[in-house]
Design a protein around this nucleic acid. Structure first.
Lengths: 135, 135
DNA sequence: AAGGAGTTTAGAACAGTTCTAAATACTGCA
DNA sequence: TGCAGTATTTAGAACTGTTCTAAACTCCTT
């Protein structure tokens, strides 16, 4: 069990990123547990309270790099705030309107039929389904 | 034909909004033609070049009020930018990734099956489908 | 151990949006 | 119609989330 999923140094290196102290600390927080949703701000608070000081700029840099490397997926649900999802597989989201909470649900049971063809000159990139719910 | 769809004063009043010069000007730009997508910034540029000076703050106010009144729908596709859609009926969106262009498509031919039930204590508000495409 | 590229940092800068308080416009009522 | 009173508009400041800057530092290679 150890060696693969917890070897953040190797995972970062495999993604083409130098395993700096800061990136390893952030990767540990992000990938050690199960699937998570974070914002730059929330991750910054978390890394500070874990006694691993990382600047906010570095949190932003790392999140963007992790996303570009395919380690994270960015989810756009509310204007003016970016969520990052550690679950990079196929899945969709519940978004609870007033509080901004986000929950994954697997896409394997969801079927979407009747989508029109992409506009001329474009190719499909991804289909996002956001189920907005209220209390 | 005239009297109903072009009577912006009455339409605003029906929505509980005073038909001020600024709101009528914006409503005319938004609802006179077919379905449109605007940002606050783009609508502000437009209203200025139409020789109907309206401040940016008022454009923001009006868009938010129109949305709250159900005259517009807000579409969240990219972090840090709000699009407003004059089409408030059931439909979904194509989002062209690099340029940020948005296109509607009707939802009547689209069927989504197998969605899980909303989390405990919440009720469904809306299902957004965003088909992201690249050039 | 040293050099150099890549990274981190604090703070400034920036973009989009909302707030403030003073001026102005719409509405209802005389 | 004229007036009072509330809603609205405005310019600019403030604010939030994010990116940039350039100097200091760290990781990797040799």
């Amino acid at each position: 069990m150890p060696g693969t999923s917890h070897d953040f140094t190797a995972r970062l290196r495999a993604a083409g990123l130098r395993p700096t102290r800061q990136r390893v600390a952030l990767a540990r927080l992000l990938f050690e547990g199960g699937s998570r949703h974070v914002t730059a701000e929330s991750l910054h608070v978390e890394v500070k309270s874990a006694q691993m000081p990382v600047s906010l700029a570095t949190v932003y840099n790392a999140l963007n790099q992790f996303r570009d490397a395919g380690l994270l997926r960015e989810v756009v649900v509310a204007p003016g705030r970016s969520y990052f999802d550690t679950n990079t597989g196929h899945h969709h989201h519940f978004f609870v309107e007033p509080d901004g909470a986000l929950h994954d649900f697997p896409s394997d049971k969801v079927t979407i039929a009747g989508l029109p063809a992409p506009p001329k000159g474009t190719r499909l990139s991804r289909v996002d389904v956001i189920v907005r719910v209220r209390r």
